[in-house]
Design a protein around this nucleic acid. Structure first.
Lengths: 143, 143
DNA sequence: TTTATTTCTAGTAATGATTCCTAAATGAGA
DNA sequence: TCTCATTTAGGAATCATTACTAGAAATAAA
């Protein structure tokens, strides 16, 4: 009894980007594009390797990059490590320096580029808040 | 004829942090703490290796980390790579995706942490603008 | 000063993430 | 079904960084 197949749009979205449909890509798409998530390539590999034992890390890297180029994912860097975000809308992130949790943070009104960058052509902006998430804050409290 | 020695304060600043004075550390300090700069460990190594041929990359990594822990430098990440910034005041960065130039960008008024993070304990915030610097913008212009 | 103690450095090996390379496999259109 | 360009697996290569260790050097004590 198969689960409801990935929303039909996923496959068509990939095709629209001129990508061939392969089991590997479909698996990555189902994992990453279904619900809001942040994952490192390695995590993706570990999860999918179970259902596709022959899968290679290489393929994960390539697939994630393809998806990013197609605008399906956004690549962000947290503490120097690559993380792929299924939400491509403009937003910031908060990361817990204890447990590593990543949380989306809506950013306020669209801010104008600072005067200092008047002569730059800015394409992207990223902002990361770093600290302790509520759960870890609680744990660290002195009794 | 020796150049004017490093400002006496550099040595004392290191000592205040409980650090032993070594030629390696002094060299890193003179390079990084003298003027505003952003450098990757590798760059630091390549420069200093010339005056201290026996210097090892290892030492650079350790020294930079020590300096960071002592609050003399700030470690930032640009596109997933570590960069050490001699300016430890609060500010943002812009990076040119063509030539790699990094520019300090003053950030406006101190912004309050977004509501979403009300229950977090935020310790740091970093923001990076990415695009083309004025020089590279100019070059890319269609004739 | 000289000696003792502790930290620091160089060098090498190890790690972890990512990329490169190539032959074989496989989608997709003719 | 056949063909061909794309994609994959797998292993080697790379790059930044860390771990380990013995010897060197800096500081503290005598």
């Amino acid at each position: 009894m198969k689960q409801q197949p990935a929303s039909p749009s996923i496959e068509s979205r990939l095709r629209q980007c001129g990508m061939r449909m392969t089991p590997q890509r479909l698996a990555v798409a189902e994992l990453m594009l279904g619900a809001p998530t942040h994952m490192m390539p390695q995590e993706v590999y570990e999860i999918l390797h179970q259902q596709l034992p022959s899968l290679s890390p290489n393929t994960i890297y390539m697939t994630l990059d393809h998806f990013e180029q197609a605008g399906l994912l956004k690549k962000i860097f947290i503490d120097g490590k690559a993380v792929f975000d299924s939400c491509t809308d403009r937003h910031d992130h908060a990361v817990c320096r204890n447990c590593g949790t990543i949380r989306d943070v809506p950013c306020g009104s669209i801010e104008h580029t600072p005067l200092t960058l008047k002569r730059w052509h800015i394409h992207a902006e990223s902002r990361v808040w770093s600290g302790l998430c509520p759960a870890c804050s609680e744990m660290e409290k002195p009794s």
